[in-house]
C-alpha cells in the first residue's frame, strides 16, 4: 500500500508524515507524531476526548482523515501552555479539581479554549452547551464548569490589561 505524504503545522511547528488513507488525524497525532494528549474515547465523534483545533475550528480529530491535514494548522493540548506558564484554563482546572481521572481533560481544555477565544463572558448555560460534545464520566461536570467560569474571568482580565497597555502605548 502506498502511503500519503502530508505536510502540515502542529502547534506552530512544520511537520511532515506519511499516512494510510484510512488513518485519522487522531491516529496520526498519536501514532506518528507522538502527541498522545488527544485521546480516543470512542472514535466516532461522541466523546470529544480527541478534540483539537483545525484551522481555528474546534473538531474531533477522530473524524478528520490524516490526509486532510495537508496545508492546515493544527493545535493540540500540548501547545496550550506558554513555555512554563500554564494557560488560565489549565491552571483553573488544577485549582478547581476539575479532573478526576483526567482522560477527558485535554479535550475539555481545547473545547473550553475554543469557547473562551470567542466568548470570554459565557453564562453557565453557554458553558454547558459549548462543552456538551465532551463527555466526562467522573466529575458530573460541576467542577469543570466552575473552572471554565473562573478561567473566563482570567481571560477577561488579560484582555483588559492588554487593552490598557495598548491604550497607554497610544497615548
Amino acid at each position: 500500500m502506498k502511503g500519503i505524504p502530508v505536510s502540515t503545522t502542529v502547534n506552530g511547528d512544520d511537520v511532515e508524515f506519511v499516512c494510510d488513507g484510512r488513518e485519522t488525524l487522531l491516529d496520526v497525532l498519536r501514532n506518528h507524531l507522538g502527541l498522545i494528549g488527544a485521546k480516543e474515547g470512542c472514535g466516532t465523534g461522541d466523546c470529544g476526548a480527541c478534540s483539537v483545533m483545525l484551522d481555528g475550528q474546534l473538531v474531533c480529530s477522530c473524524l478528520v482523515l490524516g490526509a486532510e491535514a495537508e496545508g492546515r494548522e493544527i493545535e493540540t493540548v500540548e501547545g496550550m501552555a506558554d513555555g512554563e506558564k500554564l494557560h488560565p484554563l489549565q491552571q483553573r482546572f488544577l485549582e478547581h479539581a476539575a479532573l478526576q481521572c483526567g482522560i477527558c481533560t485535554p479535550g475539555f481544555l481545547i473545547a473550553a479554549k475554543a469557547l473562551l477565544d470567542h466568548n470570554s463572558s459565557p453564562s453557565e448555560s453557554e458553558i454547558r452547551y459549548a462543552l456538551a460534545g465532551n463527555l466526562c464520566r467522573c466529575t458530573g461536570y460541576d467542577k469543570i464548569v466552575r473552572a471554565v467560569r473562573a478561567a473566563a474571568g482570567d481571560v477577561r482580565r488579560q484582555q483588559k490589561a492588554r487593552a490598557r497597555r495598548k491604550a497607554a502605548a497610544q497615548n
Binding site: 502527541l35 485521546k39 479539581a97
Partner: peptide, 21 residues
C-alpha cells in the same frame, strides 16, 4: 486541606500516560 494534586500538571498538558499511551 485542598492542596493541588501531584499528577495534575501532567494531566492538563497531555503528558500523562494512560493505557493506550
Amino acid at each position: 486541606t485542598r492542596v493541588m494534586r501531584p499528577d495534575g500538571v501532567d494531566k492538563v498538558t497531555g503528558r500523562a500516560r494512560y493505557g493506550a499511551d
